[in-house]
Design a protein around this nucleic acid. Structure first.
Lengths: 341, 341
DNA sequence: AACACACGGGACAAAAGATGTCCCTAGAAT
DNA sequence: ATTCTAGGGACATCTTTTGTCCCGTGTGTT
């Protein structure tokens, strides 16, 4: 495969652009179907007329259908899109990018999905899909999976397929709940994931920004104590990586705390901790669950983050431990390389 | 490989044309270098300006160099052309064509080389090259190779590489000499081939259109008798397939014989015999060497012919025996399919 | 040494193709 | 019934591709 792509690149370099453009169009239609020309043109930042000529070609190839309601991908088109995944991956040279990131970030494994979530919203779905596949691959009987919240993690749960051959899976939220959006809360994600994997789950009902005293009281409740104990036994941790400024805002942190974060150069957030560029802990949310020491001992640690904006945060988090896996997108991946040059 | 090509064809059908066009340009330059724009444009039946844009792209890709003397393929370009061979083969779906021809012609093996010798002169070189490779592959120690004359067979000898691991190879002209052009005489071809394969050769000096009496006298000469005996022991026969009208003209056959050929529907010629469409013998040259009965007993029989015009002749010859191998070009191959529909 | 010749590159008009823009009618949703 | 958004048609505009001619130059020949 790599050889053919090398050949194609040499003798007909335009091919790469054409193929990627069409792939993006197809994929975008698939995720939003039925969709009209103009909406699609907006999504992809292409002219309406451009879309039209491309769509005509793809229609002729029977990869999509045009109805009065909008455009739909045909069954054949779906198959082609699926088969194109690997091809696009190679075409964009993402395998090389992955190896380079592994070297520069000093971590075990990096998976890069084509696209940039900041530019095209659907990329986050691909990242979720890829992560869910990866989880399934490393899963074993009796594993305890820890998950965090966030929109990326929600995509992971969303994209997970039903069914799984492994037994007695337990999914836990790694830290106390946060945020307003129900869909992106770790409790919700844990439940969805457990359901799809045919396993069990437990919930951790714990508000953000709780006082220290109240925290201690809560920890005395038997169910919570038990859950906190289980969290220490997590085998596979899947967590979203966030920008510290985004998270501070979303969590409505107090002015003085935000000032403190800024003063100390915080760039990243993960499972309730804030870190500077070099992975030094700057601040910790007042909530319970997975501790930093705990994090460093978990066998399988999978960080998920996508979008160019997250590059710096990813660099920070990856310096926390060597054995981790990073699943990200092309936009973030390329930006990381740029920053580390 | 086939899968990637299928994908490419679906999502970006233009790619096939672009790639083939560039490949043809590269190959044509390689065979004729140094060559100028205008000559090249003529060779390929493309506009001068088209060549120019394509050449610019290929120049940018460092596949060719432009000097005041004309254009040259770079070392990298040569490598790419070589690697492209298989790719183009698949791209044009020639593997499928080969299998189809095997079925329709009822013969053991068909090899189809891209291009049409009638349109592009260089294709005959590719056919020669491919045939020479095939010969090398099936060659064994102590083999006796029989060859005929003709421009296609000359290309085979020309394109054969030097060096060969097999011992005691003997190359013989299969039939008495013919024609005026020294380069395309079977004697010459046998000698060239033997030299390149590190083997020995014998020559058969025998004029065309000799009287029957004179023929008998000649056969009594010891060297000739010995050679005729050896011809019966040929292990591998490589022979050109011709159109009966072409050959009649080239051999300057008498009017009445030509009339006879026409009357009986002769279409093909091979090793001095003329056949109608169904492979029935119509006429036999007055010369010595390989007989038709002999031909049917030889283990490896390789017919070589290229160009759309030869399609009917090929069909005729292929009906002579089942176990033969045909090496031809795309032009002839596609025409054969058309005729047999 | 002088010549004719074929080379690449520049220039430019003509043709073809891609793109932006707007309007229209049909069908879905409300 | 109405409103909204869909695809398709039409057309001007811009870009790219293509055909054509010329020019200076280096090459091979005489």
């Amino acid at each position: 495969m790599e050889k053919i792509i090398k050949l194609q690149r040499k003798i007909a370099p335009e091919v790469v652009d054409i193929t990627i453009k069409r792939y993006n169009i197809l994929r975008n239609i698939l995720y939003n179907q039925p969709i009209g020309r103009r909406t699609l043109a907006n999504n992809l930042n292409l002219g309406e007329r451009v879309i039209r000529t491309e769509v005509n070609i793809l229609k002729k190839q029977k990869l999509l259908e045009v109805k009065s309601m909008g455009m739909n991908i045909t069954e054949e088109g779906k198959v082609i899109i699926k088969e194109l995944n690997d091809f696009i991956h190679s075409l964009k040279g993402l395998t090389g990018l992955e190896r380079e990131l592994e070297r520069k970030l000093h971590i075990k494994k990096v998976i890069v999905v084509p696209g940039d979530s900041d530019k095209e919203g659907i990329t986050i779905n691909d990242v979720g899909k890829r992560t869910s596949l990866y989880i399934k691959n490393i899963l074993n009987d009796n594993n305890i999976i820890g998950v965090t919240g966030g929109s990326t993690m929600a995509a992971v749960a969303n994209e997970m397929d039903y069914g799984n051959s492994k037994k007695d899976i337990l999914v836990l939220p790694a830290r106390g709940g946060l945020g307003i959006n129900l869909k992106t809360q770790s409790n919700n994600i844990a439940a969805t994931l457990a359901e799809k994997l045919g396993g069990k789950y437990k919930l951790l009902h714990m508000p953000d920004n709780i006082g220290k005293e109240a925290l201690k009281t809560l920890q005395l409740i038997p169910e919570i104590r038990e859950l906190l104990q289980k969290i220490k036994e997590i085998d596979i941790l899947v967590y979203g990586i966030g920008r510290s400024d985004d998270m501070a805002e979303r969590r409505n942190l107090a002015e003085d705390i935000i000032d403190n974060l800024n003063k100390n150069g915080a760039v990243a957030e993960a499972f309730g901790y804030y870190f500077d560029r070099n992975g030094n802990k700057i601040f910790e949310s007042n909530t319970v669950g997975l501790s930093l020491e705990n994090f460093k001992k978990i066998e399988n640690v999978i960080g998920v983050a996508c979008g160019k904006r997250k590059a710096e945060a990813i660099i920070s988090i990856c310096s926390l431990r060597e054995g981790m896996t990073l699943i990200t997108d092309e936009g973030a991946g390329k930006e990381i390389i740029k920053l580390l040059k």
